[in-house]
Amino acid sequence: MAKLKYLVIHCTATPEGREVSSADIQHWHCAPKPKGNGWKQVGYTDMFHLDGKRERLVNNNEDAEVDLWEVTNGAKGYNSVSRHIVYVGGCDKNLEPKDTRTEAQKKAMEEYVKDFHRKHPSVRIIGHRQLNASKSCPSFSVPRWLQQIGIKQ
């Protein structure tokens, strides 16, 4: 068990407008290599679909600790102290990084992040690329977005 330090925002790195299912995530992350990553657990706790619906992918107890059974594989080296969420999209039709969040996704993510921040004000909310500069994920500036929605860290 470790203290929760980060809420990391990700994108699925899929083309704009293409829906992704929890089964897709399960396959991509947990299928044996070379078809998947061969992980024991998916990378995200919650996924925001194109219509704004939030789907729980991995249960957690919503406290400020990361128990072993709650660990997801979202960012190597940070998983034991992080919760990871993902929105469907993040790329244009050529798979180049692009903020493809629908209005429904933006609204649902804002509600989730504000509620999370109220419950855990000391937890830093960041984008995946803030932990790994070689990543484009989540294809938008999380610090700028947090300012726009009124969250100061």
Score class of each variant (00 low, 15 high):
residue 6 Y to L: 13
residue 7 L to W: 02
residue 7 L to P: 03
residue 12 T to W: 02
residue 12 T to I: 00
residue 12 T to M: 02
residue 18 R to S: 09
residue 19 E to D: 08
residue 22 S to R: 11
residue 26 Q to R: 10
residue 27 H to E: 12
residue 31 A to G: 09
residue 31 A to H: 12
residue 31 A to K: 08
residue 35 K to M: 10
residue 35 K to F: 10
residue 37 N to M: 10
residue 38 G to T: 00
residue 39 W to A: 06
residue 40 K to N: 06
residue 43 G to W: 03
residue 43 G to S: 04
residue 44 Y to I: 05
residue 46 D to P: 09
residue 46 D to T: 14
residue 48 F to E: 15
residue 49 H to A: 14
residue 50 L to V: 03
residue 53 K to I: 14
residue 54 R to H: 04
residue 55 E to N: 13
residue 55 E to G: 05
residue 55 E to D: 15
residue 56 R to I: 15
residue 56 R to L: 15
residue 60 N to R: 05
residue 61 N to F: 09
residue 64 A to Q: 08
residue 64 A to N: 09
residue 64 A to G: 13
residue 65 E to A: 07
residue 71 V to K: 08
residue 72 T to Q: 11
residue 73 N to S: 12
residue 75 A to G: 13
residue 78 Y to P: 15
residue 87 Y to N: 07
residue 89 G to S: 01
residue 97 P to R: 03
residue 97 P to M: 01
residue 100 T to Y: 04
residue 105 Q to W: 03
residue 108 A to V: 07
residue 108 A to K: 11
residue 109 M to E: 12
residue 110 E to G: 06
residue 110 E to S: 09
residue 111 E to R: 09
residue 112 Y to W: 06
residue 112 Y to H: 07
residue 114 K to T: 10
residue 115 D to A: 11
residue 116 F to C: 05
residue 119 K to Y: 03
residue 125 I to E: 05
residue 126 I to E: 08
residue 129 R to L: 12
residue 130 Q to C: 01
residue 136 S to P: 08
residue 137 C to T: 05
residue 140 F to A: 00
residue 142 V to A: 02
residue 143 P to K: 03
residue 145 W to T: 03
residue 146 L to T: 07
residue 148 Q to R: 12
